[in-house]
Design a protein around this nucleic acid. Sequence first.
DNA 1: GATGAATGAGACTTCATTCAT
DNA 2: CATGAATGAAGTCTCATTCAT
Lengths: 201, 201, 201, 201
Amino acid sequence: MERPRKRPRQARSRATVEAIVEATARVLAQHGYEKATTNRVAKVAGVSVGSLYQYFPNKEALIGALVDRHFERMRALFAERLAAVADAPVPVAARALIDAVMEGHRRNPQLHQAVLESVPRLGVQAQRDAFDAFAVPLIAGYMARRRADLRPPDLELAAWVLMRTLQPLVHAAVLRGPAFVEDTAFVDEATALVVGYLSRG
Amino acid sequence: MERPRKRPRQARSRATVEAIVEATARVLAQHGYEKATTNRVAKVAGVSVGSLYQYFPNKEALIGALVDRHFERMRALFAERLAAVADAPVPVAARALIDAVMEGHRRNPQLHQAVLESVPRLGVQAQRDAFDAFAVPLIAGYMARRRADLRPPDLELAAWVLMRTLQPLVHAAVLRGPAFVEDTAFVDEATALVVGYLSRG
Amino acid sequence: MERPRKRPRQARSRATVEAIVEATARVLAQHGYEKATTNRVAKVAGVSVGSLYQYFPNKEALIGALVDRHFERMRALFAERLAAVADAPVPVAARALIDAVMEGHRRNPQLHQAVLESVPRLGVQAQRDAFDAFAVPLIAGYMARRRADLRPPDLELAAWVLMRTLQPLVHAAVLRGPAFVEDTAFVDEATALVVGYLSRG
Amino acid sequence: MERPRKRPRQARSRATVEAIVEATARVLAQHGYEKATTNRVAKVAGVSVGSLYQYFPNKEALIGALVDRHFERMRALFAERLAAVADAPVPVAARALIDAVMEGHRRNPQLHQAVLESVPRLGVQAQRDAFDAFAVPLIAGYMARRRADLRPPDLELAAWVLMRTLQPLVHAAVLRGPAFVEDTAFVDEATALVVGYLSRG
DNA sequence: GATGAATGAGACTTCATTCAT
DNA sequence: CATGAATGAAGTCTCATTCAT
């Protein structure tokens, strides 16, 4: 995925880029990757295709920019939620982690799904890895402070397992329907999963 | 997704259909969904496009047939592996479950990934749900026999959580590299996840 | 320039390819390289763009095929004309050579020009070189039989000089108008050029 | 081809126009006609596209200005070189003529080629004809002073033939490689061509 | 039934040119 | 006058699908 073709210098162009990325999000969420044509995105953004290509060298870069933005927001969300429970006991922190993941899906489930589906299609997996590279140390850092209470020998690995477990679990729950995700039973089970995994036998 | 245009009645027809689906698997695994053109599939199958369309009304049905076959095989794999540990204690059964998931990925990782990526693109999510509809009761059945040892109040829900947890976890592990998946540390953690989740605190 | 994508196997497709190349010639002659769009060519050929791309992987290959055909015809023309004067004295052979070049331009001056202009735009200069590789030895062969009468020390070089001299000279003459080319004065001068160059001082 | 939109009145304007034409030369030489976009030319010139269009109504006029400049320089070159041999005997003058043509190619071969290739694409052939209109009388004038030594009955025609012969011959030689052009064998043959053509049998 | 040539809508992308700032 | 963001027609090429043979 190539980088943006040109930096917007004037206020006008910054607004254009913003409109394009926003339109990409809308179109991707509604129609999915293949139906998200550059012409359609441009039309939704209220811009000509030419303008789109002034800032993004190709479709891949366009989606890539959106994926970037999405994971960037996810990072911010995680940083904020985990900071709030930095010194909390494991069950509380587990619940906060699950809440963060759920919140990430709740904001715009369709976009979230579309973004995740787009990742393998983009040449690299870099952005998603970047999210992991951010979230895993964050979680591992919390664990390190609770070292004595925790079972896993390798905290980095444990943090990675949790990320790769909770994200799809919540995602699948969302696909079963909004009611299901918010259900106490589901959240309890997810919490039990995390706590059971981390605690000493 | 429309159903196959007609059922193959004769042996020759059945062989042709089989060749086409097999070619679809090869092409999908190698090139991914969008590059898996119907003409390419036909060529690999040693058949003309026209013949392909004799048996499959459109591309969606073609991929759908492959997805069907794939999940059918997964079902068989799970049925076999779980039957073998029907009366085993939880840690043993957990390990068998994880092994089954890993085996599902190991056989043809690229095809497995391509199939999973194809699911959201097909109109419905039916086949994948069908797999769940099969696997969840199977796992829940095992748990029912071990009811006394287990924590989860709702066994169906617990079985669903395990499926939706292990599949992506192993999948992510595969993407990190074959060595990582086979690594003892990873398998131990996955087992700990399952056992910790199911056992009474 | 890539090679043709597919060999036409059936009579129908051979006719299609022929129609496409012929249309390319017409469009190129009339509109020039950049205006010779693939869609226009297809339309003139009475064929869909898809058919065009079934046989030619891209525009370059399309024009390339025409250029090939053109130089192939030129080769045939030269072979025939020069064979007829294989043992003639220099002035007669010179006149035949000039006639051959003129005939090459006369058949379809606009196409000839368009083809020549297309050569530098195609990645390689191969086809034109191939024409030289054919014509130069032919002329040099004639000279070798007349060695005693001729001045140039290096016959290959002399043949090359003649080719690279007569072709553009006649071409320029054609651009000045049909009457001018056919004018005795011009033909006389061209003959004098060749004879003066080849004869001993 | 339209004329420049306006004449630069002030020194600054003249400098801007000069920069644009110079940039056109650089871009054309490096990228060829189609890749020589107006935006690229403007960027290389250190000017905005808008400014470019202030001075040139369209791309054709832009390239036209460059072609004009190029042939203007060629005219100057020829005038100077031929003046130096105004009274020299034919072989000396012939050699000077060939040198002048070679010098024309040597200065910037890529630009020279690009300019020549651009001529047929521009609506008219005017500038090139203008060069002929200048060079032919110049050469014919020399010949007139040597009338007694020369064979050709029509000196204007002979001069035209020489121009149309030497230019492409040297051009083709350049394409075969710099070493080849400078080679004594080639220069000798070119000289023999001219002298043989002009001298009485 | 099989074949594969043919179709054509539509995707991505470029670039000469305009015009608000 | 200068700037450069914006435009959009038009070009190249792909591929699911059809249909004459």
